[in-house]
Design a protein around this nucleic acid. Structure first.
Length: 689
DNA sequence: CTTGCTCTAGTTAGG
DNA sequence: CTAGAGCAAG
């Protein structure tokens, strides 16, 4: 297999062929970045580098999987699978598992997920008496968790944190929690996600033997989406690279949109400060979008000051102007979007999977979702609260765990809680104590609850029926070998379905919520089927998938998207592209988001206007053929119709490349604002009747 | 312990 | 306007 580089442009080829020394590849949107990375790996292999000596780090499992898939096609499965290819976290975890002593972890260490971390922090807050002590002392757990995470990734120790100057009570609370939190982690023999990176960095710094071992093993490093790295990740890269500095990082500073998560754009902006011999290659040819889209994108991003100067040079000629759509109000904006998509699909024959609606914040999709439903169009939603993350689905999942993994006390507690059955905090305390004394799980304690004194009769009755329902479901499960029907029975039996339907405000909401549970049951069925085909069903894997990766169950991106319009937050849209893109709600306060200009005290990181602009840029550059940017002149906000200012980013669009479509004016609904609003009002009335 | 009322806040997300 | 949380009453 000889590597064919003829399909690459000179810059791409240079990026592939520069294998020695530090290299920064600035890959503009749609510049063929993935091809460069895969070709580069194949080239290294052809030069005789052993696959085990090549490391490619990414941020998401999805990105890592996609890279592995492409490489499998080029090199065959065996070679591709022996590359070290994965997320920072997964590679870090693998290193720690290989040398637990060096990294200071037990042989079998646990990894806490977000929920566990919240639980720990809540417990520490309680210990410190900082929680639930009057209204003024109530903290948003997330804000504290975030601060601790940011400190860890900046190598700020608990002691360091105590010594910092604090502007807010949040910083103080977080500093107080940090130390005890770390102690508890250690006591549990567990690490959190941050440790998977930070511990690698510190150990490689302090332990010469470990450093020598890993530097010898990982001879060629590649990092994708480098603009998203934080301080700890930078240090992992530097310390793995050693003096050899065979580091190739690929990224785009103009698409750095995770500063609020601790990512440092400085890592990519100052790459040659950290790696003095660095060579920089810019990939500026854009193979994705028509010229007007590229021109708009260039004009917008040029307004940012801290960036590597570069352009998108469109390789596709022609194309429509970008359309800016102005609606009189939010409702009409949504209707216009629904109508436009409907026409595209039903009259112009555009494939649904070629259309995306992008927005700044997840809630904006509600209105669009409703309209697509009205038009009978299929869609999928990226970002925002994932399906499996919704309360009902988590509840159902807890019942599944209670049924097949009864030792999971966390799940038992959750299941016990919904629907309410007269069992409260006090009773659970009694149960836990009983369990602790006898070394039982919470579930076992529940089954033997009649042995426990001090349980009120109402709670006792609740526990008895819970216990009976669980036992019945378990028997059914062991007899049938499948969890689907028993779980369904259990959920009905404990009245979860009734509860979910009753809790929801409207009929539509109730159905939507229960659909989440149905979806879980279907996913479980598919999972069992796959497992049986392979010989065994490992439910633990199912829980992992549910916990960690929403897309796993859907298979690959293309399958999941087929036949569906995509609704996505701008953050989740990064890296994707569609022929037709609608970028909606482009108003001040939404984009840029108002929290950038008016931060709250719980915000650990101040918002950044340049980052907001990059977000807008990411949105524009997702479009291949056509781009619509929409906004509303007024919007219903907290019950009142308020005027909205157009996003300042719209001012940056070059007039020659855009066309403005004012819905009120162009549809001859009237020439002045009052008339169009009256029209809109009447239209709303008609809709209501 | 549960229910129902009142208050408050309301970005973005991955392992 | 809503969802989630806190709090007082049954």
């Amino acid at each position: 297999m000889a590597l064919d580089l003829s399909g690459l442009n000179p810059d791409q080829r240079a990026a592939v062929l520069t294998t020695e020394g530090p290299l920064l590849v600035l890959a503009g949107a749609g510049s063929g970045k993935t091809r460069v990375i895969t070709h580069r790996v194949v080239y290294l292999l052809e030069r005789g580098v052993a696959p085990g000596n090549i490391v490619a780090l990414s941020f998401t499992n999805k990105a890592a999987d996609e890279m592995r898939e492409r490489l499998q096609k080029m090199t065959g499965k065996a070679v591709a699978d022996s590359l070290v290819l994965g997320t920072f976290h997964s590679v870090g975890a693998a290193m720690m598992r290989e040398q637990p002593d060096h990294f200071g972890v037990p042989k079998k260490f646990g990894i806490l997920d977000q929920g566990d971390v919240y639980g720990l922090v809540r417990a520490v807050l309680r210990d410190l008496g900082l929680h639930g002590q009057g209204a003024e002392r109530r903290f948003d757990l997330g804000a504290i968790v975030q601060r601790i995470s940011l400190w860890k990734n900046d190598f700020v120790s608990p002691a360091d944190a105590q010594g910092l100057y604090f502007e807010t009570e949040y910083d103080e609370a977080a500093a107080a929690v940090y130390g005890p939190y770390e102690e508890r982690l250690r006591a549990l023999g567990a690490v959190d996600f941050d440790d998977l990176i930070v511990r690698i960095a510190t150990t490689l710094e302090e332990n010469a033997a470990a450093r020598a071992y890993w530097q010898d093993k990982f001879r060629y490093l590649m990092v994708d989406e480098y603009q998203d790295t934080n301080r700890a990740q930078l240090e992992v890269v530097r310390r793995l690279a050693g003096e050899r500095e065979n580091v190739c990082v690929v990224g785009d500073d103009d698409q750095a949109i995770y500063g609020w998560r601790g990512a440092k754009v400085a890592n990519i902006l100052g790459f040659d400060m950290y790696f003095k011999r660095a060579r920089t290659i810019k990939l500026e040819q854009n193979y994705r979008s028509y010229a007007p889209i590229c021109t708009c994108a260039n004009a917008v991003i040029a307004r940012n000051t801290s960036r590597h100067e570069k352009q998108l040079v469109p390789q596709r000629r022609g194309g429509d102007k970008v359309t800016v759509v102005v609606a009189p109000d939010g409702d009409q904006e949504a209707r216009w979007i629904g109508r436009t998509i409907f026409r595209e699909v039903r009259e112009n024959g555009t494939k649904p999977e070629d259309i995306a609606v992008l927005y700044r914040s997840a809630k904006q999709c509600d209105a669009i979702e409703a309209l697509l439903q009205e038009h009978g169009l299929a869609y999928r939603i990226l970002g925002g609260q994932a399906f499996y993350d919704k309360k009902q689905v988590k509840d159902a999942l807890a019942y599944l765990k209670v049924m097949i993994a009864p030792k999971d006390d966390l799940a038992t507690r959750r299941a016990l809680d919904v629907p309410s059955r007269g069992v409260g905090l006090k009773t659970i305390e009694h149960l836990s104590e009983f369990a602790r004394h006898r070394n039982l799980s919470l579930a076992e304690a529940i089954h033997r609850s009649d042995e426990i004194a001090d349980i009120p009769s109402r709670a006792a009755a609740g526990l008895r029926s819970f216990s009976a329902a669980v036992k019945r479901a378990q028997a059914h499960f062991y007899a049938s070998g499948s969890a689907v029907a028993p779980l369904q029975g259990l959920l009905e039996g404990v009245g979860l379905r009734e509860y979910v339907l009753k809790e929801a405000g409207s009929e539509a909401a109730a159905t939507a919520r229960w659909d989440g549970v149905v979806w879980l049951l279907e996913a479980l069925g598919r999972f069992e089927q796959r497992g049986r085909a392979r010989g065994q069903v490992r439910y633990n894997d199912f829980f992992q998938v549910m916990n960690a990766n929403k897309d796993k169950d859907e298979g690959d991106e293309e399958d999941a998207a087929r036949g569906k319009i995509t609704l996505s937050t701008l953050h989740s849209a990064k890296g994707l592209e569609w022929p037709l893109v609608l970028l909606i709600g482009c108003e001040e306060g939404v984009m840029p988001h108002k929290r950038v200009s008016a931060p709250r005290i719980s915000d650990a990181i101040a918002g950044d206007l340049e980052e907001e602009r990059r977000l807008f840029y990411v949105g524009i550059t997702r479009a291949r053929d056509r781009l619509f940017i929409t906004r509303a002149a007024t919007r219903l906000e907290r019950g009142a119709q308020v005027p909205r200012k157009p996003s300042r980013f719209l001012d940056d669009l070059p007039e020659a490349e855009i066309r403005v479509h004012d819905i009120a004016r162009d549809e001859r609904l009237g020439h002045d604002n009052i008339a169009s609003m009256a029209e809109a009002f009447l239209a709303n009335l008609a809709k209501g009747l």
